[in-house]
Amino acid sequence: MYDWNDLPFFLELSRRGRLISAARKLHVDHTTVSRRIAALEKNLNARLFDKSPRGYQLTDAGLRLLPFAEQMEAQSNQLYQEISGKDARLSGTVRLSAPEGLSAHIIAHHLGAFREQHPDIELELMAQSRRTSLSKREADIAITLARPDAGRVIAWKLCDYRLKLYATQDYLDHHPPITGTEDLSAHDFISYIDDLIQLPELRFLDLVIKDPHVVFRSTSVLAQYNAALDGIGLSVIHCFMANQEPRLIPILPEEISINREYWLVVHEDLRQVARVDAVCRFLTRLLKDQRQNMMES
């Protein structure tokens, strides 16, 4: 029989990925975390973690144990609240994967209110433009550009957003005038690196011009945004980003307008975990409040 007091050590190492980080959160020495994990693995007769240069990664057995441990943690918090009559403060770490532009220009700018309401929840924000595996627990929650069509996940649409073509006045002053889409072939463009695009929803430049003359490519939305501000070319940019920068001028705004969607996705085993639910509610409210900003140009 295993000691269920070992489970908090398992949970924290699964979230942190490193002994020292888990130990710091649990207020113990890292050797204590290592010893408790070893004891749990011995009692369960299963290896729960693989160690690599990137830290500790859950094995298949660890992934199977994780939802049960999280349910026990949630029930423990609920028991305290029901029996003591006190509100259990939500605590712990929640890892969120979200597109870079949304992360930097919307989510990160509205964390103050969330921190005031939930000061003991530590939010880890992975800003990226690749697929995130919730089944492998790369993140607890993901904001995606499309509804997932497989997996044990729960998803709902957060909002629509719009992208348009932008350039600076300095760029326009030093290049041929643009009066129609046929003029775009004489211009320089900023875009993603083609063979590193994982998501078809990011191939929006193809909708603007065939065979564009691309002078700068990056996997980073912020790098593309800053390159456009530096006047090196035309770029398809989120309206909610361009709205904050008066130097960016929309090009053919009535003709070039691309709509996309944001979806919130959470693994079904985590949907009722209190701290995860708190983050889901925060994101849902935030993107609802931002809907007009997402579509304006």
Score class of each variant (00 low, 15 high):
residue 83 I to S: 02
residue 270 L to Q: 07
residue 19 L to S: 02
residue 6 D to Y: 06
residue 138 E to A: 07
residue 190 I to T: 02
residue 260 R to A: 12
residue 88 A to K: 13
residue 216 F to C: 10
residue 255 E to V: 10
residue 27 H to V: 02
residue 132 T to H: 08
residue 103 S to E: 06
residue 138 E to W: 03
residue 243 N to K: 15
residue 113 A to F: 13
residue 244 Q to M: 15
residue 270 L to N: 08
residue 219 T to R: 05
residue 286 L to N: 14
residue 116 E to H: 08
residue 106 I to T: 04
residue 81 Q to T: 14
residue 297 S to G: 13
residue 155 A to D: 01
residue 183 D to A: 06
residue 145 L to C: 06
residue 113 A to Q: 14
residue 212 P to N: 04
residue 200 P to G: 07
residue 185 S to G: 07
residue 19 L to N: 01
residue 227 A to G: 01
residue 179 T to C: 09
residue 220 S to K: 02
residue 238 H to V: 07
residue 118 H to N: 07
residue 111 L to C: 07
residue 205 L to W: 00
residue 260 R to I: 14
residue 278 A to S: 13
residue 143 I to N: 05
residue 275 R to S: 11
residue 164 K to E: 06
residue 183 D to M: 07
residue 155 A to P: 03
residue 68 F to T: 03
residue 159 C to Y: 12
residue 159 C to L: 11
residue 78 Q to P: 02
residue 14 S to H: 04
residue 21 S to T: 00
residue 224 Q to H: 08
residue 43 N to V: 03
residue 282 F to I: 08
residue 63 L to C: 06
residue 25 K to I: 00
residue 168 T to E: 09
residue 269 D to H: 08
residue 202 L to V: 04
residue 157 K to C: 08
residue 145 L to N: 08
residue 261 E to D: 11
residue 93 T to C: 03
residue 191 S to I: 13
residue 271 R to M: 13
residue 262 Y to Q: 11
residue 216 F to P: 10
residue 202 L to K: 07
residue 233 G to E: 11
residue 173 D to V: 00
residue 137 R to K: 03
residue 169 Q to V: 06
residue 141 I to G: 10
residue 240 F to A: 01
residue 175 H to Y: 14
residue 144 T to V: 04
residue 140 D to M: 02
residue 139 A to Q: 03
residue 8 P to N: 14
residue 288 K to E: 15
residue 148 P to E: 06
residue 35 R to K: 08
residue 1 M to C: 09
residue 182 E to W: 10
residue 86 K to A: 10
residue 194 D to A: 06
residue 14 S to W: 00
residue 24 R to K: 09
residue 296 E to D: 07
